[in-house]
Write a protein that binds this DNA or RNA. Sequence first.
DNA 1: CGGGCCTTTATGGGATCGCATGGGATTTGA
DNA 2: TCAAATCCCATGCGATCCCATAAAGGCCCG
Lengths: 167, 167
Amino acid sequence: MDRFVSTFTNKIDAKGRVSIPASFRAVLERDGYAGGIAGGLYCYPSLDAQALDAGGERLAKKIDGLLAGLPDYSDERDELSVALYGDVQVLSIDGDGRIVLPENLRAHANLDAAVSFVGLGEKFQMWEPKLFEARRAEARSKVQVTRKLFAAGSRPSNDGGDEGARE
Amino acid sequence: MDRFVSTFTNKIDAKGRVSIPASFRAVLERDGYAGGIAGGLYCYPSLDAQALDAGGERLAKKIDGLLAGLPDYSDERDELSVALYGDVQVLSIDGDGRIVLPENLRAHANLDAAVSFVGLGEKFQMWEPKLFEARRAEARSKVQVTRKLFAAGSRPSNDGGDEGARE
DNA sequence: CGGGCCTTTATGGGATCGCATGGGATTTGA
DNA sequence: TCAAATCCCATGCGATCCCATAAAGGCCCG
């Protein structure tokens, strides 16, 4: 497995520690996190949500790539740099697979007693469980619409064509 | 056989385990189930039914393909990512061909004592038996109508199509 | 054509392993 | 020296593996 999938909810203990889901850890290790010290978990406030984005080397490279696409010294680039790099924290993962979330990050995502880890393929997000529930419901209803568009033929793309159309 | 066909109903035991019908297992294996590391069963709540959708690598690729077409950091992509990846669970299949359904999935499909596995070609669904009975009855009556249309002369392809509901 | 054996498959239960979690010990930095 | 962060070990629960039993269906042989 080389992508973050599924969602898991873990508790924050008295010391502020949270276990990263074992399957996510596996992805991170394969991603170049090798050894632990060198790598680390890249983590920053989501740009458009009350949540945190996190990932391994691959995610870091992606951000680099994104910036590389913009002209040097452009305002756009500066803004993105600040928005992305400025708030990035490299969290270390302890021997038991746990991290400690710095105060500013916890504040941004409203994290308190527990964290929902949400796999999004190449990265994952960390949400306050109740907030995520709401977000998921919203995403679901929007996808209903998107789907109807697919079915209507605006987006052929894939083979069988049917996919969800059924039902 | 490389498509999921027919319907089978199996029990959920005290530990929450269910046997996947042998013929479905065969399809999964042929689907590259072996290749995909820690290969498993991709499973998520049906977007428009009180049931679960499931499939193998082929289904996973389809989801990826859908997302690949959207630009990074677009709202659209975020929505889909959350709705799809976030809800998707990768269930592992034990040595006896059984899976355990996580609580949230069981809740969505109202699964309790037994599960009806319904082949839909490239994927299959898991229904609460009684709910599926009702659904099937409904599908039947609709097919009656469709049939009259056929008879009227339209004559579509019928690739064994869905409706597989039959046993 | 019929009967019995043998393989496949579903299901149940016991044992084991891994993971999340909690608490103490130890080190680091001020 | 004290506080805070880090490491290490203990534990409980849930998940996973393995084996046993049973029912069903297919096959071979009479």
